[in-house]
Amino acid sequence: MKVAVPKEIKNHEYRVALTPTGARELVSRGHTVSVQADAGEGAGYSNRDYEAAGARIESDVELLWQNAELVLKVKEPQPAEVARLTPRHTLFTYLHLAAEEQLTRGLMTSGATCIAYETITDGQGGLPLLAPMSTVAGRMAVQAGAHSLEKAQGGSGVLLPGVPGVAPGKVTVIGGGVVGENAARMALGLGAEVTIVDKSIARLEVLDDRYQGRIKTVYSTADALEHAAKESDMIVGAVLIPGAAAPKLITRAMLADMKPGSVLVDVAIDQGGCFETSKPTTHAEPTYIVDGIVHYCVANMPGAVARTSTQGLTNATLPFVLALADKGWQQALRDDPHFLPGLNVYDGQVTYPAVAEAFGLESINPGKVVA
């Protein structure tokens, strides 16, 4: 199969969808791998690294897409990339379509087969291709939030660990999944007072047992969220409903009760954000202020640590990439019931119910598509 790896063009996105090691695995199986010139540069991989792995370096981006059958990316395709998609393409990347109607309709118009990393499941009900980037984003959230608390960044001037004689900062994490737990671990490691809010009693029990009271656990209610807004120096939004838009849990009205200069870090921004006042930002301009509250809503946080993120991503995606290349997308999805939910758009139709519901569209059963 002809596999293409374009250079990411989203603002300050330095990751690449395939490492040279991954390219070597594909080439060893008889596939052709074409990598856009300098696609791996931001992650520390040179053109020579890919050539040594047996890949071809392509400087003509139009030719790269035209010759491709399987296109591997990191972030959702930008408008110029959507325009290059045709029915002969299979696109494999993060899509997060429930928050992007224009992108969804663009992919439908293209006729391409679009498979999303973030909706593939595993036998335990997890999201194995979302997990590595969720881990990175969760850990980065507190790092970015702590920086945003600095007075020069518009924050309140609170140092999370405090100092002797001065109380530490208070961090609330909404959502106790992969992102939430990693954010909480980072905040705890910095010496902050940490609370996780979640609707799952079972998950709160796991976290309480794991951290032995060092992290407070609170069942999520309107009262709990209002209390968090009033008391916290930083709130990390780590809510995930797979494939669907995130609920708005911190309203604009709540901002009036927050401490001036407090920080909201919305890791759910890819799915529309879980704060009412959230809007996507970039690494170039990561924050903005609403009613005295600093908002950090970068939609590709892991792109800032491209080397680590690229390696973690390829480790997770490579088995699926090999299956697509070896078998073709229909057989690969037919053989693996956990791979099948990754199909989001096919032949102009939405195949993921939560995406269709977000925009009032009809969805088709992906099982019928591959049958």
Rank of each mutant, 00 (worst) to 15 (best):
T104F: 00
K248A: 07
I9K: 14
E231C: 11
L159P: 11
L159I: 13
A146E: 05
A137P: 03
K279M: 06
K73P: 02
D122Y: 05
A316K: 02
K368A: 15
S110H: 01
G162I: 04
A146Q: 11
K199A: 13
V35I: 13
H227M: 13
P87F: 05
G360S: 04
A229E: 06
V197N: 06
Q271T: 11
G191D: 01
L97K: 08
T217P: 02
R252A: 13
T93Y: 12
I9P: 01
V197Q: 07
L264S: 08
I9T: 15
K259M: 06
V321S: 01
V218P: 01
A224I: 09
V171A: 03
R24T: 09
D257M: 07
E62K: 09
M301C: 00
V305K: 02
E118A: 09
P280D: 04
G273K: 07
G243H: 05
E100A: 15
R105A: 05
T281G: 04
H89Y: 04
A37T: 07
T172F: 04
G157H: 03
E62M: 11
L64W: 04
A167P: 12
K279D: 00
S46A: 04
D49R: 11
K10N: 06
G175C: 07
A245Q: 15
H147P: 04
D266C: 08
V16L: 02
P280M: 00
D257G: 11
E58I: 03
